[in-house]
């Protein structure tokens, strides 16, 4: 009797393991092994969570916002929890450019991931000086221009709400560096696409959508605002549906990649953003709650692509088709 099993055709490999290259993304002249970045202000300078995080699984780390001079930050209390969200008014406490170059930048060539410097200035001159300095940092994979921090009285958000100021900041940065320039937008505007287009027109390589929403809470017992600064920026799952809408709109308005940042806790959240048109995603508040969130989301995206026989490129903006 013939062996019938042998005659059976080889089962078709319908779901090939996505090749590693499927997850590679390109921003400007740099490529990243996967689309999952650690959001600025939620991963320090990259050297706090070495015990818990496998850096080789991160597409990139984005540093805490760096300014020319060290900043003490805002008075306390600086954080208050809200339903599925976190409001913060850290005020860009950071060690300043000098200490960054001396103590942190030298660690980066040895890391198993790439580092993007998030920089913040109160004038074009400060942004320029920071950009020039970052140009000289070995192994840096890009610069994220923070024109959108809601927690500083001077500068920051003022650039991000004004298309002309945005144009100036990006134009200057572009003329000074070949590194990828990512512009981090603020959601605290009526129409984000206007600022997005201004940044894209000046040669930005990608846009981060977005920073946090201005918000507040009141301590009813003490009858005063819960934060010392009254207002702070809200992050976390509470803001996801709003940022998702903005990612959809911005990615329809510009041709450059959009990096989503807002409330991503799970693979499902990440998939929504990719389907809305994001090329990459940032994990922020989720890392506070689960330092391994980025790993779990990377594995989840791989699984999803495999079981649906899709590439990452197929997925980006897929919800807009048809």
């Amino acid at each position: 009797m013939p062996d019938s099993t042998k005659r059976h055709p080889e089962p078709q490999q319908r779901h090939p393991e996505p090749k590693a290259k499927d997850l590679i993304i390109q921003i400007g002249n740099q490529s990243f092994t996967n689309p999952i970045f650690m959001a600025s202000g939620t991963f320090g300078y990259g050297d706090d969570l070495t015990d818990l995080v496998d850096y080789s699984k991160l597409g990139a780390i984005i540093t805490k916002g760096i300014s020319l001079e060290p900043r003490a930050g805002n008075p306390t209390p600086r954080i208050i929890e809200t339903s599925a969200g976190l409001i913060n008014s850290i005020g860009l406490q950071n060690i300043g450019l000098k200490a960054f170059l001396k103590d942190k930048a030298p660690l980066y060539p040895k890391l198993k991931t790439r580092v993007i410097a998030n920089i913040f200035g109160t004038s074009i001159e400060e942004f320029n000086e920071l950009t020039d300095a970052m140009n000289r940092v070995e192994a840096l994979a890009g610069i994220e221009l923070n024109i959108s921090c809601p927690n500083v009285k001077k500068g920051g958000v003022e650039f991000g709400v004004d298309p002309k100021a945005t144009t100036e900041v990006v134009k200057n940065a572009r003329s000074r560096t070949k590194l990828p320039i990512i512009v981090k937008l603020t959601p605290n505007v009526t129409d984000m696409t206007i600022i997005a287009k201004a940044a894209a027109d000046e040669g930005a390589d990608a846009l981060t959508v977005s920073n946090t929403f201005l918000s507040m809470r009141i301590d009813v017992l003490k009858r005063r605002p819960s934060l010392a600064t009254t207002f702070g920026g809200i992050s976390g799952p509470a803001i996801l549906p709003i940022i998702l809408r903005q990612v959809w709109q911005v990615s329809s308005a510009v041709k450059i990649p959009v990096i989503a940042s807002g409330g991503i806790m799970t693979t499902h959240d990440a998939l929504e953003y990719l389907m809305a048109g994001a090329t990459a995603i940032q994990i922020g508040t989720a890392t506070y709650i689960n330092p391994k969130a980025a790993h779990e989301i990377l594995a989840g995206i791989k699984d999803y692509l495999t079981s649906n026989n899709l590439t990452l490129q197929d997925l980006i903006g897929i919800a807009k088709e048809g």
Binding site: G41, T42, F43, G44, D48, L49, L52, K64, G73, P77, R78, I79, I80, E81, L86, N88, I90, Q93, T285, T287, Y288, P291
Partner: peptide, 10 residues
């Protein structure tokens, strides 16, 4: 008040 406990939120 602590958000992360691990040094990354300030």
């Amino acid at each position: 008040r602590m958000a992360c406990g691990t040094g990354v939120c300030l």
